[in-house]
Design a protein around this nucleic acid. Sequence first.
DNA 1: GTCTATATCAGGATAGAC
DNA 2: GTCTATCCTGATATAGAC
Lengths: 196, 196
Amino acid sequence: MARMNPDDAQRPSRDALVEAAAALFREKGYERTTVRDLADAVGMQSGSLFYHFSSKGEILYEVMRRGIDDLSAAVTLELQTCSDPREELITMTRTHLRTLLSNTQASLASLLYEWRSLPSDQRDQVVQLRDKYEDVCRDVMQRAMDQGVVKQGDPKLLVRLWLGAINWSSQWFRGDGELGIDSLAEEVVDMILVKN
Amino acid sequence: MARMNPDDAQRPSRDALVEAAAALFREKGYERTTVRDLADAVGMQSGSLFYHFSSKGEILYEVMRRGIDDLSAAVTLELQTCSDPREELITMTRTHLRTLLSNTQASLASLLYEWRSLPSDQRDQVVQLRDKYEDVCRDVMQRAMDQGVVKQGDPKLLVRLWLGAINWSSQWFRGDGELGIDSLAEEVVDMILVKN
DNA sequence: GTCTATATCAGGATAGAC
DNA sequence: GTCTATCCTGATATAGAC
């Protein structure tokens, strides 16, 4: 999966820390995860974290930034393989869900629920990245509307409703059920988006 | 609006505290709201809170319990005025959105995002109430499917997608835009639920 | 039922050795 | 780059007066 930021994955222990942090934040929430928890997860002492990051908040920022970067990159890449709006819709949904629900990329969950813990200047940066992602989605939705694949309406609003529906799956989806991620993606597109 | 628990609103300062807490939790998040913040909001000293509640966590529990109670009561009541599945769908959506986005009943937001902070025994109780509410929604969805108002499929899954779509509005909806709550409800039903 | 004062403790962060 | 040791703040909760 293409990375949009060349710095990513260049510093191994920093990198491992961000991954572990993403998992812990998803599990326990940012505020309830202590720097000692983070250090334990990568076999360090808590003081050592601050060689890599200047604060706990900066770790959250890095988790979020990578989360939205990876998501954008993955969706953009996959969209290139599509030949019609219906296929774009299902591919976008599937890729978003895979990234969100993947156990190795837990970063997105923080992005959804922990933004109040980010210092406001870093929040602005993350919001900007998120908006860019939503623009990509809106374009797909617009094309789908133009072709009559989904109902006419405000594409921006539809993107929000669609995002809500699929992001909420992080609260209830468990990989061990009958329903797989890819089938879920199809259900979403069939049940709430596509006309007939 | 009918209350399901007779204890509610019987003890004024406890009651005011729960309301203030709901607003603060929505604004800053539970973990970042201190007992001093809560005390300030009702003009008390922080120590005095513990006459009414044994812990901060119990305040969260009370906020959530009232949130889901009030929502259930409101939706159940409004549904009685409906004569067909299409109307039930729009009424249920409108009532849910009104309750979620109302400034005087901020409790629901905590219910959505702060459940990890609840002690597990209380979490079970809240989950039980939430499941009961979802059962009501599922019945409405089932009737709508039977009548061909929404596409055939798994009503339980459709309720989850619908809940995700509308709950997510707490993240982006601002009362000052062109779009009002009731119009949003109609858009939701039109864009993602109803056939044609 | 609320206040003042304070106990207690956990969490983020720093300093300096290695 | 990591460890040990520790500082310091701020948060929950308690005790006892009024």
